[in-house]
């Protein structure tokens, strides 16, 4: 009798405590979860682990000596440089474009939105080729550039340009829906209170978009450091000069220098992980700011 009561009670409480969205049988839930985890493990965790395992195959000594090599260091410097230029450039562009699109109506607005999406739509290789066609030796401005002793293609400027091109939708795309949802009433209110454009931007607009902005910057940075296709076309693969980290990984791998290749790859992966942690942190802070 007592046992019967306690079973019904516990049954009852467990139902009340755990509100489930679905009522699928246990085996369905377990199977789906297992499939998802296996997939993640095979396609994400395992390769990532493999990168670090391969990089450390000959021990820490070999791993760190791979970074002591001047070409590897140069590639890290170049990647950081390209990101350091293209991310701020796209930050400025993205904020300006999102501001225009969200707060004003003008002819050609939909064309501008489509153009912003262009780098997402075309293959990165095409993006690189565009720059070769424009700035290359046989390109439109090629002769003029040679006359003035300026090198764009197969040099650092080309890499920065290509990186900027493929990453420019990130900030704008993040901000446009956010700013459209917020409308411009707060800016207009600040205007009637006597604020000038600069004050409105810094004191009303930026605080409202800061989390979206940070998120866009992080995504933009991740892509800037990892870009391969477009940069590969304009780089020319000059060792120690125009090889970014992804290109350096490819070269080392093709030369059967697996430890070196995976060491550089692991550095790149670490940068990506740091970026992801930052992104998660920003999302968490944003959710907290929303909730309060």
């Amino acid at each position: 009798m007592a046992a019967a009561i306690s079973t019904t009670l516990s049954h009852h409480t467990s139902h009340a405590a755990v509100q489930r969205a679905t009522h699928d049988p246990r085996w369905v839930r377990w199977t789906l979860t297992t499939v998802a985890l296996l997939f993640l493990g095979c396609f994400l965790a395992l390769p990532l682990a493999a990168v670090f395992a391969e990089a450390l195959r000959r021990g820490f000594g070999a791993y760190f000596s791979a970074f002591a090599e001047s070409d590897a260091l140069a590639s890290i410097r170049l990647t950081l440089l390209a990101a350091a230029i293209s991310v701020p450039a796209n930050l400025g562009f993205g904020v300006a474009a999102a501001w225009c699109i969200a707060k004003f109506n003008f002819p050609g607005k939909s064309v501008l939105i489509t153009l912003i999406d262009l780098p997402f739509a075309v293959s990165p290789v095409i993006s690189g080729l565009i720059y070769v066609l424009v700035f290359g030796l046989q390109g439109w401005w090629g002769a003029w550039l040679i006359e003035h002793d300026l090198k764009v293609i197969f040099a650092v400027p080309g890499i920065v340009l290509a990186t900027t091109f493929v990453t420019f939708p990130f900030v704008a795309r993040e901000l446009i829906p956010l700013m459209q949802a917020q409308g411009s009433d707060e800016e207009l209110a600040a205007l009637t209170l006597g604020a000038n454009g600069w004050q409105i931007f810094w004191r009303v607009t930026v605080p409202n978009i800061k989390w979206g902005l940070l998120y866009g910057i992080i995504l933009c940075n991740a892509r800037a450091m990892g870009e391969f296709g477009a940069v590969s076309v304009v780089s020319g693969h000059i060792r120690g000069e125009t090889n970014t980290m992804p290109l350096q990984v490819e070269i080392l791998y093709n030369e059967y220098n697996f430890v070196g290749a995976f060491a550089v790859a692991s550095a790149l992966a670490l940068l990506a992980i740091v970026t992801l942690v930052l992104k998660a942190l920003v999302e968490w802070r944003h959710a907290q700011a929303r909730a309060s």
Partner: peptide, 26 residues
């Protein structure tokens, strides 16, 4: 901004990241 009008918007347009005090003091 220089007309010295007080304008109250239909949906108030309060600055959402500022407190009541900061809103009024803006």
């Amino acid at each position: 901004g220089k007309r010295k009008v007080g304008f109250v918007f239909q949906h108030y347009a309060l600055f959402r990241h500022m407190t009541v005090f900061e809103n009024i003091a803006f």
